[in-house]
């Protein structure tokens, strides 16, 4: 049992265990941190598969970017002072049976298929070849991905910055940004927003 196998099994257990913890944990912050371990273990898997650049990108983008975004989302969409951080799970038994069937089907297909394998190459650095591919064969998808990221960034900023007081059940008030021509709107809007906060917390 060489080092490759030891590292593989160690991180396979880490990945699957923390993914299970992520799915079944009641606390959403625990889920987010379990997802971090899953993504980090997957970066180790990519390094095991001689995909160094993908591994580094996984660490930078997923662990450094998407996970921080998710944690921000958790904190910004949690009510109160983290008292209601627990979340609900519904239909657990049928969902588990369904996904177990899906997983068993996938595994049986993967194992029973006779894949055409290429002979293993030695691990040379893939960085130069990837850069050349990006500038030649994948030039158009590369540019399109850049434009897509720009559009997603602008859209996310525009959508997320449009703040609005949470709608409290039973009372219907308009948006807190009231029209400027009504004279007492400036004195009225803080009251209504704080009243909305109060009724929202209860």
């Amino acid at each position: 049992m060489d080092l490759f196998a030891v590292v593989f099994y160690l991180f396979a257990i880490l990945i699957i265990g923390s993914a299970t913890l992520m799915v079944f944990s009641k606390n959403i912050v625990h889920s987010a941190f379990a997802l971090m371990f899953t993504l980090g273990g997957l970066a180790v898997f990519y390094a095991l598969l001689y995909a160094g650049f993908v591994a580094v990108t996984q660490l930078l983008v997923y662990v450094g970017g998407i996970l921080v975004l998710i944690l921000f989302g958790v904190m910004l969409t949690t009510q109160g002072y983290f008292e209601k951080v627990k979340t609900r799970t519904v239909n657990l038994v049928p969902a588990t049976i369904f996904t177990a069937i899906v997983g068993v089907l996938l595994i049986s297909v993967f194992v029973s298929t006779d894949w055409t394998l290429a002979p293993l190459r030695d691990g040379e650095s893939t960085m130069t070849a990837l850069g050349e591919l990006l500038m030649t064969d994948f030039m158009l998808p590369f540019q399109v991905a850049g434009v897509l990221l720009l559009l997603a960034m602008i859209g996310a900023v525009l959508m997320a910055s449009r703040t609005r007081t949470p709608k409290s059940p039973g009372s219907s008030y308009g948006s807190p940004v009231s029209s400027p021509d009504s004279p007492d709107s400036s004195s009225q809007s803080p009251d209504s927003s704080s009243a909305g906060e109060e009724s929202h917390k209860t």
Binding site: I16, T87, V102, F110
Partner: peptide, 19 residues
């Protein structure tokens, strides 16, 4: 495949949109 199944389970059984 196990990761895919766990992700599917999270999508169809959890009710928090972040999860």
């Amino acid at each position: 495949a196990v990761l895919f199944s766990l992700g599917l389970l999270a999508v169809i059984s959890r009710r928090n949109i972040i999860l």
